[in-house]
């Protein structure tokens, strides 16, 4: 056990990276924004309404030690009932239309909705079809859009923060 703990500690200390200085200043400023506006951590509920999973991979990356989203007062929650913001990916498939509407109805006001990725913004490469409603705004009101296929973690972070700042 002791060697294991020693390894964990050693590896942990060696590799824990710090954000680059310019990045850190920017994030501090935005964290201040969140506190000023919400007075607590921002709760995000992510909903995949039919994406290819590319956008999800980049949303996962928001939690890596480089971006460290939680460290700046933003966290992902499990229920739309606890969410300040829905972060939605993918074109909204016909088969997800009802589930997405239900999630939106469940969330408390002010119901911030951010469309993440080209598909969520405009329907993207999948567009509108017999199986796809297209852009998120075709199904529920959208407050902010983050284009990209997929958007990078930095673009996602900037887009989420811009949406709160509105």
């Amino acid at each position: 056990m002791i060697p294991v703990i020693r390894r964990i500690l050693r590896a942990g200390i060696v590799s824990e990276p710090r954000p680059e200085p310019a990045e850190a200043v920017e994030l501090d400023r935005l964290q201040g924004e969140i506190r000023r506006i919400l007075g607590r951590a921002l709760a995000i509920r992510q909903v995949d309404a039919g994406s290819c999973n590319g956008c999800e991979l980049e949303i996962h990356a928001l939690n890596n030690p480089y971006v460290n989203l939680e460290g700046y007062g933003i966290r992902f929650v499990a229920s739309p009932r606890h969410a300040d913001m829905l972060l939605i990916t993918g074109p909204v498939t016909k088969n997800m239309e009802h589930a997405l509407k239900t999630a939106w109805e469940c969330m408390p006001d002010p119901k911030l909705v951010v469309a993440a990725g080209d598909c969520a913004c405009s329907g993207g490469i999948f567009g509108e079809s017999y199986a796809s409603c297209g852009a998120v705004e075709r199904v529920i009101p959208v407050d902010a859009r983050i284009p990209g296929c997929p958007p990078t973690p930095r673009q996602l972070l900037a887009g989420i923060l811009a949406a709160i700042g509105r």
């Binding site: 994406s51 498939t93 088969n95 999948f126 199986a131 796809s132």
Partner: peptide, 11 residues
């Protein structure tokens, strides 16, 4: 399943 069906084959 089928929730992510977005009609790719037809496209």
């Amino acid at each position: 399943f089928g929730y992510a069906h977005k009609g790719i084959e037809r496209l």
